[in-house]
Computed example of a mutant assay.
Amino acid sequence: MNFFKKLLDLLRSPVTQDLRAEPQINEAEAANLAARLAGEACLDRHWRSVGTVERDVIAYMISPSFRGGPDWPSTRQAYRVVRRGDSILLATDGLSDPFDGVEGMGNGFEMELFMETAEIPEHARGSLGDVDPLKNSWAFELLEHVAKTVADAGGVTERLDQYGTLSLEIPGFSLSHHMSDQLPKIFVTEDDSTGVLLGALEPDFQTRLDDMPLSPVRLVSMVLITASELEYVRSGGRAAREDLVSRLKAAGIGHMSNLNRASVV
């Protein structure tokens, strides 16, 4: 909070105001910006404790919200890249931004999604300092799809509190740009869908950030599941979903999305 206060004071200072482009922002906008920057700094500190964080994020030239896409809390929609040995962790960056033009609502949807995998094709991995190739990976395309669904729902923290874990399916697999070329058929149902679990499997790092500027934020894991696992959840509902989580834990699969693993059902 000290960082947040100092940043807000800086934004109010005459020197800072002289450097701002016209028109100058008002008090509420300054507070919102200070909170957003403080949240970004908090996330950055956390991800740096997890692995090597790329300086650049994966972002858009024009926010998708201006082109009919689901609204995130702010117009900023981006994705962080964290390199951890042979694996790459991709995380949303903006779902926990304070809401634009709204005060007293906390840190946006109070969550960010992440997924980690070592199974990204070499041409789409990029080297340290180059995140652009990752746009051509199945992992980014899948995370982007799920992020849109989560944003359209206004976040899923309440449902996670209620159910513990959630399952989500993405239809139209054959129409995807990169998943259809890079994912094995074991992950595709007969009706052309792919499935994931949200919040089911805890990683080897903290997933609750209590030091965000406005309200706590949780980092929600996203794990790719096989077609037979998705069918199992479809037919069995919550009991099957909970059993699947237990089987995945027992198999030592953890939070990693592994394309070479066998199905557990």
Rank of each mutant, 00 (worst) to 15 (best):
P203S: 09
D210N: 12
L198Y: 04
Y232T: 02
L209P: 00
A240F: 03
P216G: 08
V223S: 09
M256K: 12
V223P: 05
G254S: 09
G252I: 12
L219R: 00
A200Q: 01
I225R: 00
L248G: 06
Q206V: 15
D191I: 08
R241E: 11
I225N: 01
D204Y: 03
M222K: 13
V233W: 10
P203D: 13
P213D: 14
T226D: 06
S215K: 06
V223G: 00
L214M: 11
R234A: 05
I225Q: 00
S193Y: 04
M212K: 11
G199I: 01
S246C: 06
A250Q: 15
G199Q: 02
D243S: 10
M222P: 14
S228G: 05
T226W: 01
E242P: 01
I253G: 04
E231G: 09
E229L: 07
R208H: 07
S193V: 02
G236H: 04
L197K: 02
E229N: 10
L248I: 13
D204I: 02
T207N: 06
A251K: 03
M256S: 13
A250H: 15
L209N: 03
P213Y: 10
L244G: 00
S246K: 12
S193F: 03
D243E: 15
R238C: 04
V217T: 11
G237P: 03
I253Q: 14
V196L: 08
M222Q: 15
D204A: 11
G237Y: 12
D210Y: 13
D204V: 05
D192G: 00
A251Y: 07
L244R: 01
F205N: 05
R241Y: 04
A227H: 03
D191R: 14
P213L: 15
I225K: 00
S235R: 15
D211K: 15
V245F: 02
L219M: 10
G254C: 09
L198G: 01
R208V: 12
L244N: 01
E231Y: 08
G195E: 01
L244K: 01
M212Q: 14
A240G: 08
A250G: 15
M222E: 10
S221D: 10
D210C: 08
R238N: 10
T226N: 03
D192V: 02
K249L: 08
D210S: 12
A200G: 14
E242T: 04
S235W: 12
D191V: 09
E229G: 04
T194W: 00
D192T: 03
R208L: 11
R247E: 04
I253D: 13
V233D: 11
S221Y: 02
A239G: 07
T194V: 15
M256Y: 13
A251I: 10
L209T: 05
A239I: 11
V233P: 00
L201I: 14
D192I: 05
D204R: 07
H255V: 10
H255Q: 07
L248H: 07
R218P: 02
D211V: 13
P213W: 07
M222R: 13
